[in-house]
Design a protein around this nucleic acid. Sequence first.
DNA 1: AGGACGAGTGTGACCGGTCACATGATGCAC
DNA 2: GTGCATCATGTGACCGGTCACACTCGTCCT
Lengths: 327, 327
Amino acid sequence: MAAAAGVSYQTVSRVLNDSPKVRPDTRRLVLDAIDRLQYRPNRAAQALGLGRANAVTVVTANTMLYGYASTLQGIEESARLAGLAVGVRVVESDQDVDVRHAVEYVSDPSAGSVIVVAFDPAGANVLRALPPDVPAVAATEAGGVPGSERTMIFLDEREAAADATRHLLSLGHRTVHHVAIPSETVASARQAGWRGALEEAGVRVPAILSADWDPRSAYLAGRRLAADEGVTAILCGNDDTALAVRRALYEAGRDVPGDVSIVGFDDLPGVAYWTPALTTVRMDFAGLGRACLAALATELTGVVPPAVTPEAPRLVIRESTAPPRGR
Amino acid sequence: MAAAAGVSYQTVSRVLNDSPKVRPDTRRLVLDAIDRLQYRPNRAAQALGLGRANAVTVVTANTMLYGYASTLQGIEESARLAGLAVGVRVVESDQDVDVRHAVEYVSDPSAGSVIVVAFDPAGANVLRALPPDVPAVAATEAGGVPGSERTMIFLDEREAAADATRHLLSLGHRTVHHVAIPSETVASARQAGWRGALEEAGVRVPAILSADWDPRSAYLAGRRLAADEGVTAILCGNDDTALAVRRALYEAGRDVPGDVSIVGFDDLPGVAYWTPALTTVRMDFAGLGRACLAALATELTGVVPPAVTPEAPRLVIRESTAPPRGR
DNA sequence: AGGACGAGTGTGACCGGTCACATGATGCAC
DNA sequence: GTGCATCATGTGACCGGTCACACTCGTCCT
């Protein structure tokens, strides 16, 4: 390649990294040779020489769930546009072995920089265990992950959760029940917003029901709520949970939103076409992913580009919420 | 590292690639040094020396849709277990520029081997444009992608689609309508199975309605079907489509399954908790992904391991299908 | 005993870039 | 016209592995 352009390999390298110290006509010469030969620099060699690959690898506990998948998608898109290779590493659990393996994996220079999706204990543990010399930022739950000094980006769901709760209260519900999803923190931001709104309204704070990612667990939680005539409004940890809860209500003969109002979280595509269309909180996970990549870029280059800020979570009111019966 | 064990770097290399030509006690010596120093070989250097990275990169047009995401997940899991790094590259469209960029990306040795998710024209084009020297297999629609000699793995949805259609017919429906989703082939296997079953039953084959990935398009298709009193059974291209179609039916005052039966495709987690629970075809995309990785492994090593076969698609009957009214 | 052989190990070159530094060419001031 | 700074380019070493080959033994055969 170098020979083809009649210059040294170093000059080629300079052109590729567009160093300023190349005369315009020399640059032209090299560029010509480059596309004459369809030359593409070898990423492995670059990584070896540079000491770190021009890549970003996403460490995540999951790739299918909406929040995780969208975040990944946002990262991928930005990375591709920035010319970075994209890798994925899933951490199976928050157990030591799995966490250690993931950390070792990304410690290799060929992993490039790292974005840890720390929505859960597995991700959070990886984030904490990451050696300081591997460049990384994290996408976390609102508030961040304690025990790490890394840059953390998050969506502030607290206010939106409070909004959702107030919305239900303002419709005339006495209180709002909550079905929580797994979370890194003991009291997630969703939960905190919900509780805050209830307390602010001087209203009873019911016990929280917990569901995991299996829709069945949400369904079971729904059954318990359905059995209680007193529940008329439910804030669900996410849309999938809402779906299963709604099923349980349906089986118990309780109409949504006639007898019980439900609110979800995430705004999955398609949720507007449910029957009834789901009132939910829209979460801009893709924007979160893009913001992570931008943050990583500023961390690496030091230059601060126009800030990339994800959309703030916001309540989208549709059909699954209404005033309680007899009001 | 080599020094620490008192042997040459070559011997270390031999131990790492467990070459048989190392005396047991020498091997022990090296292994001891390895975990004493927490030594991990540099993947970039390996890739450079080997000429190709020990990795697999997945080329796909999408990462969020269920079929794509599950396939990716299946691949990731197997790859991780096999000690391979995992990369992702999305092809934005089937246009030349995008396809070329994706091909260039994976032509770099550091991409390792390639699995092309060719469910759509974008993926199919990449598959066809792949230089012969990059090792690759493809996950395709049933029947494969013409114009490429690569190994192709697919789920045979034809029979399941026919089953679904026959199921509806056997309930007493005069015919079954079809809302199709985007596909690589003009007549996808889902469509072919559907048509075959109708013809076999000597029944009228209605015009196909096409939807894209936007639920709104499926909703609009649903509206057209809802307006036609003659339609009592609909086979939808996937579950999301079914959801939006069901919404359109609901708005038109047509009950599911009382007035109209619907069947989906994919069996999304949660679909069992819809109201009504959706009758659908379960697709083992994760198994497909695992099978791709296994195929890649045999392609690379030549050894044929116990075949990894995904589950065959199969109809799961739930609540959204019933005999037509007045029968 | 001498030679062939094979197992186990070491040496040198190479993969394709990068960095640090040396060298040559050019421009400007005096 | 000379001196020096500056720009542009080339050279050598290096990143951390791999491959091909050479070498040193100990065994076995004749």
